[in-house]
Amino acid sequence: MSERQSYFRAALGTPGGRAGMLAVGAIVLFGIAAPLFLPDPAAQPDIVGGALQPPSALAPFGTDDLSRDVLARVAAGARVSIAVAAIAVALSATLGTLIGIVAGYAGGAVDALLMRVVDGALAVPRLFILLLLLAAWERMPLAALILIIGITGWFGTSRLVRAEVLRLREADFVRAAEALGARPGRVMFRHLLPNTFGPLLVAATLAVGDVILLEAGLSFLGLGVRPPTPSWGGMIYDGRAVLTTAPWVSIFPGLAIIATVLSVNLLAGGLRAALNPREA
């Protein structure tokens, strides 16, 4: 039985966690399966007569100014937004965990140095760094965007993991491993790492919601995911000119953001609730 599986199974035990997990699953599945039953999100079937059509049986979310199917674009946006968030968070969680474990276990000067770096980094608004970089690098590829979101997101995680390691470090099983002659690497990765997994998972899940919002915000400003790649933030941006006449162009991607972030946060809450009894 893998630990990851068991955490998610435990989260299913709470009503919020259950709802969150089902909703996240449904959104991801919808994003992945959409190409099977929805039109090509890039297709512009009838740019003259088919643009800005209100929701109908044919196009349940209506069409945009280029006659593209909004539902298909929301689905494609789900793929992009969730993938960007998941990869960026995986990257920042990995970095944060590594740095947090090293700082917490090594202690002393190494810890002091790493934590001052984190203090400094946390004092600079993340959005500010991102805007600066994006302004300097006009046609930033998606991979670079993910990378940048990832490496600007580990500071909080490293603190969380470090705090957890400081607590665990005092446990007798760590003493026992040291007494057996375990090298630091072994203590950190066989003993400390698996025990930080629970809180880490909660934090990472919450971070996915944050990154979805961040990416949407950047894309809305025209700085994140660039057209023609569909993204929820970009779609809201595209729809702002016709907000009064064709609100569906912006409203549905907006609702998609809210629904996704809400269900991710519900899932995080469920994970947290499932983890806490273990701590007691």
Binding site: D172, F173, R175, A176, A179, R190, H191, P194, N195
Partner: peptide
């Protein structure tokens, strides 16, 4: 040289 501990709960890694 080895050691055994007092607290049977904290002396074993719960994930191992």
């Amino acid at each position: 040289m080895q050691i055994i501990f007092q607290d049977p709960y904290s002396s074993l890694n719960p994930r191992m």
